[in-house]
């Protein structure tokens, strides 16, 4: 694993622990708000996208009929990753908060702690590999 891959893998979890640490700052503090909002808006989703990424990128996405810009497809995939990181984070935060409130175990710190622990666990999960295509010869490199 390269240092860059390690940073990508650990950054979302680090963001969660940073947000937890930021709770010691006074309420309404901009630093506290920034740490919490950035993690809630991107952390859990980014961790999930990293796990699923290789499997998701194994096949090309649907795209325009005309393909003139060689970078267009790559940029679309990048936008897709960003969108998933954002929307999955929002979605997971809503689900975790709902579960805790339905279980009468709700508090802001518990929501953040749960999301941070899930994100940290995700950081230690290996990425899902794409299944080889049927035409891949035996013994070939994946």
């Amino acid at each position: 694993m390269t240092p860059q891959e390690l940073v990508v893998r650990m950054l979302p979890a680090f963001g969660g622990w940073l947000a937890l640490a930021a709770l010691t700052l006074p309420g309404g503090s901009p630093l506290r708000g920034a740490a919490v909002v950035v993690f809630l808006a991107a952390g859990p989703g980014a961790a999930l996208v990293r796990i699923c990424g290789p499997a998701l990128r194994a096949r090309r996405a649907e795209g325009p009929v005309e393909r003139r810009d060689p970078h267009f497809e790559r940029h679309s995939d990048l936008l897709e990753g960003l969108m998933l990181a954002l929307l999955l984070s929002v979605g997971v935060a809503m689900i975790v908060a709902t579960v805790l409130i339905a279980a009468h175990a709700f508090s802001g710190q518990r929501v953040l702690l749960t999301l941070t622990v899930l994100t940290t666990l995700a950081a230690f999960c290996p990425s899902l590999r794409a299944s080889p295509t049927p035409r891949t010869p035996k013994g070939a490199a994946p």
Binding site: G27, G28, T98, L100, F106, G108
Partner: peptide, 13 residues
């Protein structure tokens, strides 16, 4: 609403 309730507490507002 549950997510916003968490956000209110976490922002400390």
């Amino acid at each position: 609403f549950a997510a916003q309730a968490a956000l209110v507490r976490l922002l400390g507002v």
